[in-house]
Amino acid sequence: MNFGKQLKEGVITNNPVLVQILGMCPTLAVSTSLFNGLGMGICATLVLICSNVVISLLRNIIPNKVRIAAFIVIIAGFVTCIDLLLKAFVPALSESLGVFIPLIVVNCIILGRAEAFAYKNGPVVSALDGLTQGIGFTVALTILSAAREFIGAGKFGGGLIDVSNGFRIVLGGADGIQVLPEGVGASLITQPAGGFLSLGIFIAVVTFLLRKSEEKAAKKEATK
């Protein structure tokens, strides 16, 4: 399996959020600003790469009967490391994501990839699988966050882009760029119910496009 194919699978055809419908809890909960979405994506990707590599290395040692318990211990270990490191070095992100950092432990993308991929494949491909699936998660989360932020509050780049004193990239606390006039946004979208709505629409659009391209490919195949 080459990297390009894995990347395409992770980001588009087998996207963890949009196609496998995994990791819904963090997706719905933190996709409220660009900063949160991007931050959660990167944290989950780091955990996913580490846990995939370790589980892949230990796949011949971990007995089948207790594999889930072993996976959870390994994943929880990495999540706690990330949590502590964020608290110490990126406190803004740690505050903004709050309890959703420790909750990466139960992100089913990570356990799902451990079970479906890393436990059956070598460490290098598993690392790449972690990276590509992580990128897929991050891309989906970032797009959803940006869309919700724009529709809900008329803003772009909340927490990340500060324009109050010239254009600056900061970590946390920034208000973002007010694209639409204040008060124009449909604030329902930034709330949990709006999260379900926007995620549903996002998944529907992606599924529609994927199916269309599949049909096109099938037609091409048929005319050959």
Binding site: I62, V73, I74
Partner: peptide
Amino acid sequence: GILTVICAIVAALLGVVN
């Protein structure tokens, strides 16, 4: 035994990070 060893290694790692 295997689970205990895995837990011990993870705990040691966490100790270092902490």
